[in-house]
Design a protein around this nucleic acid. Structure first.
Lengths: 240, 240
DNA sequence: CAGTGGTCTAGACCACCGA
DNA sequence: CGGTGGTCTAGACCACTGT
């Protein structure tokens, strides 16, 4: 997209920058589409080829890319993998919709007992509280209320809040690899109804998530979806 | 023994030699036991460190080894597994509740276009239609409306209908290994409200499932859960 | 402190593919 | 042929862990 003026500024590992740059290009591309060649990325980022390969290795093992000797690197064909773990932004993009986000709350707080237990920290520890109203193609879809472990994400609130939470976590090497979701249907509260522009009592799809990277809990969130604008898709099984 | 790009006559590629040497050492070792350090392998095999890391990378992504910065490389501890695929009966048992089932419909039908496409058969083919009202600890929880591929399950309606669908499928070697779920919240229809003993319009958690065993579609179903008596739990991830 | 893994460089040769 | 990925080298500096 933009920001390709990126000349290895301070703040991030080079192979991570390359990886997330390519992940972005690739996430929208059709299967079989060519990815940038290794030498092209070497030139673009001004890094060694081994560094580029290190970046691509991750995407290949994630199943996003396929390498074909003598021909190039390509967006992998859809495999049957366990439902990829994604955030709202990535999910909506995959559905061909334009995700947007309006921040309602973004501040440091002290963890209450529930959040503390879910994040595997102590009551009163610093947490990042980020509450957003989320749209798709301009229409209100969901309220997302997330708590992040501040210790794992120092300065997160300062360093420009990106749209995609998981992309931001990925840049810090904390992209969730595991999530525990609880899904329920409920009646919209007055606050939910107000924000989602629906009558109080209308059905709401609630998603409570606890997302881990390795054994570190990085995100605890609760999302409330308008029932008429969102269906959740999940694939289960096949550890292949 | 390995791959296509065979060259370098002597026994194979260097990183493969290193990798298999370490795999051999590690395969019998207890979790937490130290593996040879990278520089030790460099000396032993007379290769560059990058080559050794390339070898170890494979074992790490296979989950055999864990790297700990500043300490060393160790035999990995057993990992967590992806949440298993279960049916209502198994799910409720796991929650410590007593699952029961009242059959509303159990007969052979001809597949309509929607069911046929989902089951990957032709319109008009024979399908087993099984609709049940399901309880947990005597209380109504859900309506489950399932269609099964009759060709895969000859005589299924005759051979005593078990409570647990997946257990029955398992006995025939057809336990689902893969499922595609669509989850939504909706307002209860008059029929749903009547069966579930709730007011019309109350929130309902809908689960539409397409379950496969290998590449054969064995079950297509739609379940409607009372929102106040059921929350769905899902674990995602760990593809690394 | 010495040792570990994490990252990175600036080259190199090879086998393979498509034009 | 030129471009691709596959492999490999011989160094380097860093942050971190242990003693």
């Amino acid at each position: 997209m933009d920001t390709v003026g990126v000349k290895v500024p301070e703040g991030g590992l080079k192979h991570v920058q390359v990886r997330e740059y390519v992940r972005d290009l690739v996430s929208d591309a059709a299967p079989g589409a060519p990815a940038p060649s290794e030498r092209e990325l070497v030139a673009r980022f001004g890094v060694a080829r081994m560094t580029v390969r290190q970046a691509l290795d991750v995407l290949v093992t994630e199943g996003l890319l396929e390498r074909v000797p003598g021909r190039g690197t390509f967006v992998a064909h859809p495999k049957r993998l366990v439902g990829q773990l994604s955030c709202y932004t990535e999910d909506m993009k995959r559905r061909g919709m334009l995700p947007e986000s309006q921040t309602l709350v973004a501040r440091l707080e002290q963890a209450g007992p529930g959040v503390a237990r879910a994040l595997d920290i102590s009551t009163g520890d610093a947490v990042i509280h980020w509450k957003r109203l989320r749209r798709a193609d301009q229409r209100v879809v969901c309220i997302e209320d997330a708590y992040l472990n501040e210790v794992l994400l120092p300065g997160f609130l300062q360093t420009g809040m990106p749209t995609s939470l998981y992309a931001a976590l990925g840049e810090r090497g904390l992209r969730p690899t595991w999530a525990e979701d609880a899904i329920s249907a409920d009646k919209a509260t007055v606050e939910e109804a107000d924000l989602l522009e629906i009558p109080t009592g209308d059905p709401i799809l609630h998603l409570s998530r606890r997302a881990l990277c390795g054994d570190k809990v990085v995100e605890v969130s609760r999302s409330a979806f308008r029932h008429d604008r969102f269906t959740m898709y999940v694939q289960l099984g096949d550890l292949s």
